[in-house]
């Protein structure tokens, strides 16, 4: 892996909330094009980890770089999808307006036809092309989730950071998203509680739980018939395929 471009690098990263350690002394390297799934219990620090990657939080100690630069300087290269958005449900915005936000950047005040084409294409990619003109308040949870995924893809990023992309999505939609994530060539970092996502071409799994922080697991046997339930990194997951 030595010759590959480094997408994400964490060196001795610690994050304290007040005096409470949320993440401690993490060293991690993610290479460009890798597909990483992040698992761990609620409150274990997964969201903090993502926010540190995105430059929304600064580490208390240590250093983070994305493509060799501080996250805030290159966050526009990242397509981010939050788990949910706590917005006013009656907001007068169409699905297309939300996805177009992925085309927004500093110093840009208008959207072009190219922006609209990319936004519509992103909606098609996640299987909700027909919803472009719908008001967001009329969407189901799964449709809203896919809209947020389309917005992340509309940024045409070098890396996507997705927080629970399949939450509230129906089975067929989930399969579509797994296939999509598998087919993307860019670096993918996906937080998920969905065990099925681990079965579709994931390169590595990170288990984050506070001070224990990160285990990297390479070459895990993730086939449903395998024994991944015995692997300590995945001990919290149910052995649904046993």
């Amino acid at each position: 892996m030595g010759s590959r471009t480094i997408a994400v690098e964490l060196k001795g990263v610690t994050f304290l909330y007040g005096r409470e350690p949320i993440l401690q002394d993490i060293d991690l390297t993610i290479y460009e094009g890798e597909y990483i799934v992040v698992i761990g219990p609620n409150g274990g620090g997964k969201s903090t980890f993502l926010k540190l990657l995105l430059g929304l939080l600064e580490p208390t100690e240590g250093k983070i770089s994305l493509f060799g630069r501080p996250p805030r300087e290159v966050s526009h290269l990242v397509g981010y999808m939050p788990q949910n958005v706590h917005q006013n449900s009656d907001m007068p915005l169409r699905v297309l307006d939300i996805v177009l936000q992925g085309r927004l950047q500093r110093g840009k005040y208008r959207f072009t036809r190219e922006d609209e084409r990319v936004a519509r294409e992103s909606l098609e990619m996640v299987g909700v092309g027909g919803l472009a003109e719908r008001k967001i308040s009329t969407l189901s949870g799964g449709e809203r989730q896919r809209t947020l995924l389309a917005r992340a893809l509309a940024t045409q990023p070098r890396m996507v950071v997705l927080d629970e992309p399949t939450a509230a999505v129906d089975m067929e939609g989930q399969r579509q998203i797994y296939r999509l994530l598998h087919s993307l060539q860019m670096t993918r970092i996906v937080v998920s509680h969905d065990i099925n996502i681990l079965l579709e071409g994931v390169d590595r799994i990170l288990y984050i739980n506070r001070e224990l922080v990160v285990h990297e697991s390479i070459d895990l046997d993730l086939h449903p018939s395998g024994h991944f339930c015995e692997i300590d990194l995945l001990q919290e997951l149910r052995c649904k395929h046993e």
Binding site: L56, S75, Y80, P82, V85, L93, Q101
Partner: peptide, 15 residues
């Protein structure tokens, strides 16, 4: 609108 809808996303976009 970007801020009103999702402040974190707007910040990640460099706004």
């Amino acid at each position: 609108l970007a801020l009103a809808y999702d402040r974190d996303f707007a910040q990640v976009r460099g706004i």
